[in-house]
């Protein structure tokens, strides 16, 4: 714990709050996802070249054009809320997995 860290008084953020995730090492901030988003949940990052900001997380419809139309594979992906994760079973071994 860093005693020097500045602490702010902040209200709770909407939750689940991360419908899409970015890999900042791949994303070049082209904002293509911002352009196509159906619900306009993303805004351009004020720092040029950085991944967009998820401004309205709770409005995401989880439809995916932001991912589908991204020119840099792996830069953005959908992140289903934990309570929405689905399970599957490997037929041969009976092992269980989840998204």
């Amino acid at each position: 714990m860093n005693d020097e860290a500045r602490v702010y008084a902040t209200p709770n953020a909407p939750s689940p709050g991360n419908p899409v995730l970015f890999d900042a090492s791949i994303c070049d901030g082209c904002n293509r996802c911002v352009t196509v988003c159906l619900e306009d949940i993303l805004v351009p990052n004020p720092e040029k070249g950085r991944p967009p900001i998820v401004l309205h997380a709770e409005e995401c419809w989880y439809c995916g054009p932001c991912v589908d139309d991204c020119p840099l594979p792996g830069a953005i992906w959908l992140n289903h809320p934990l309570q929405q994760r689905v399970r599957w079973k490997r037929k041969e071994t009976g092992e269980h997995f989840r998204v």
Binding site: Y62, C63, G64, P65, V67, D68, W77, L78, H80, V86, R87, W88, K89, R90, K91, E92, F97, R98, V99
Partner: peptide, 21 residues
């Protein structure tokens, strides 16, 4: 397409071996 096919494939789901709940 993205929410299921891509997301589940990325998580390891294989339609030839796995049964989806």
């Amino acid at each position: 397409r993205i929410p299921v096919m891509q997301t589940y494939t990325r998580a390891g789901f294989d339609p030839a071996r796995d049964m989806l709940q």
